[in-house]
């Protein structure tokens, strides 16, 4: 199991992670944190203190829509849903990340040699 990603490195990726997990369907805050942890095999554990500001900022930007309703298996929750704007934002962030990741991989690989 890969080690946990350092906080500083994770900073700035919360938006991409949140949009990615919400692409699959509606989730509430706690579920989003769990889903990110599960999807990354425990590598990414977003700070809960930064998760909610990120969710609310995305909502303010129109990338997410939120609504209160009873959950399928439990009490009332605030569910987030990705919007068309959010999908566009996800695509842009994903491309940026791919470029960044490729560049980093090449650079780090060169250092290793």
């Amino acid at each position: 199991m890969p080690g946990r990603i350092r906080g500083q490195l994770l900073k700035g990726t919360t938006t991409l992670l949140v949009l990615t997990v919400l692409r699959e369907g509606e989730l509430y805050g706690y579920e989003i944190a769990q889903r990110i942890r599960d999807m990354s095999g425990g590598a990414f554990v977003p700070s809960e203190g930064s998760l909610y500001p990120a969710l609310h900022a995305l909502e303010a930007d129109g990338a997410l829509e939120a609504s209160w309703r009873e959950g399928d298996r439990g009490p009332r929750r605030r569910y987030y849903r990705i919007t068309r704007t959010g999908l566009g934002m996800l695509e842009a962030h994903a491309q940026e990340w791919a470029a960044f990741s490729l560049g980093m991989t090449r650079a780090v690989g060169r250092v290793d040699r």
Partner: peptide, 17 residues
Amino acid sequence: GRLGPPAELGRLLRAAH
């Protein structure tokens, strides 16, 4: 503790809104 200092969280949420 995982949510962090309450004042800091409040400020971040205010900035987000």
